[in-house]
Amino acid sequence: MNPVTAAALAGAALGLALCALAAARWARPSLAERLSGPRQSPRLTLRPSEGGILSRIGRVGAPLLHAAGLPGRRATRDLRVCDRDAASYLAEKVTSTLAGLLLPPVMGMLLASFGALPEPVVSLLLWVGFAGLMWFAPDLSLNDEATKRKEEMRRTLSGFADLVVVSLAGGAGVSGALTDASANGGGWAMTAIRDALREASLTRTPVWQILRDLGDRYDTPEFAELSASLHLAGADGARVRSSLSAKAKTLRVQFLAELEAKAQASTERMSLPVVLLFAGFLGLLGYPAMSLILFST
């Protein structure tokens, strides 16, 4: 394909995409449609003060993706874990997709100027693959951030349970032990626990219900175990100290086991570069001798 023709097609595709985004952004229904149709849900609002440059650039196309049903169920759960709004995520997805569609033609024009343009089929496959990768890049980044936050929440919950047991051993009640334990810590995870306990105190909501809701929000099932122990202590008068002590020990042992498993997995991954380095070293040493044997006359 001629580079000029490819550039013209890329420009036409970009222009059509921008026209579609602009039409979806600034289109307004008529008065008759507003009166005859059902009451529409509020339009997706974006907070310009949040998000990076990707969110600000892709702000125009975010309502289009929102109308298409995005974000999905998994992305919505990860956004809730990361305390992010869907608007910034959709804006980053729009900008990332546009970058995936525009960068390959530009690179193709640069390669064509040097006479190194690949075959049209190969170029098309690379273009589609890069665009697909850029489409899923925000999802991968969001999933990675959500995984890290869930791990941090679990670590904080383990330490929080230990502090509650210490406060109970000192003679404090259940509510006082929870408040004291949440006051001795920093970070966003402990702040979330502290705010949840303050909300329970202000709204007269049972603590175990608030903690269970917190676990559902941050996708941390360990909150349900702690909530069950507190519920048992409040409803049946069970020995809350021994129950919480057992839960704290279980969380600590589980967390240490996961750390050990991750360390072993990292050790196993480290063995592959060592083997490759050793194989390369042997090849470097044996190449002169093998070359002399094979190509000697």
Rank of each mutant, 00 (worst) to 15 (best):
W188N: 10
L282F: 09
S242D: 10
A189P: 15
A200C: 12
L244V: 04
E225W: 12
E268H: 15
L211W: 05
T267M: 03
A263R: 11
V253R: 07
G286Y: 00
R241P: 05
R204Q: 12
D216Y: 14
E260A: 10
P221H: 10
A181T: 07
G185F: 14
T267V: 01
G187S: 06
D180A: 13
E260Q: 11
E199P: 02
A192M: 11
A224V: 13
Y218H: 12
A265F: 12
S229G: 10
G186C: 05
L277N: 00
S271G: 12
A183E: 08
K249M: 11
L230N: 04
A183H: 03
Q264M: 11
A257H: 15
L256H: 12
L284Y: 10
S243F: 06
G286F: 03
T205P: 03
L202T: 08
F281P: 10
L276Y: 10
G185A: 07
R269H: 13
L232S: 08
P273Y: 12
Q209P: 04
L251I: 00
L226T: 02
D195Y: 12
I193N: 04
Q264T: 09
K262P: 03
T203L: 15
L277T: 09
V274G: 09
I193M: 14
A238W: 08
A233V: 11
K262H: 04
L226Y: 02
V240P: 02
L214S: 00
V207G: 02
A235H: 11
A183F: 11
R269W: 14
R239P: 02
L256K: 10
F223W: 14
S243W: 01
L277P: 00
W188F: 03
G280A: 13
A228T: 01
L251S: 03
A228P: 04
H231R: 14
S242E: 14
L214M: 06
L202F: 01
P206V: 01
E260S: 15
G280H: 01
D216S: 14
R252E: 10
Q254E: 07
R198N: 13
G187W: 14
G215E: 10
Q209K: 12
L259P: 07
W188T: 07
A246T: 15
V240D: 06
L251K: 05
V253T: 05
K249A: 15
A200Y: 04
T191N: 09
L284N: 08
V274W: 06
E258Q: 08
L276E: 01
S243G: 08
M270P: 01
G187C: 07
T267R: 14
V240I: 15
A192S: 03
V275P: 00
L244W: 10
L277E: 03
T191M: 15
A246V: 11
E222C: 07
E225C: 06
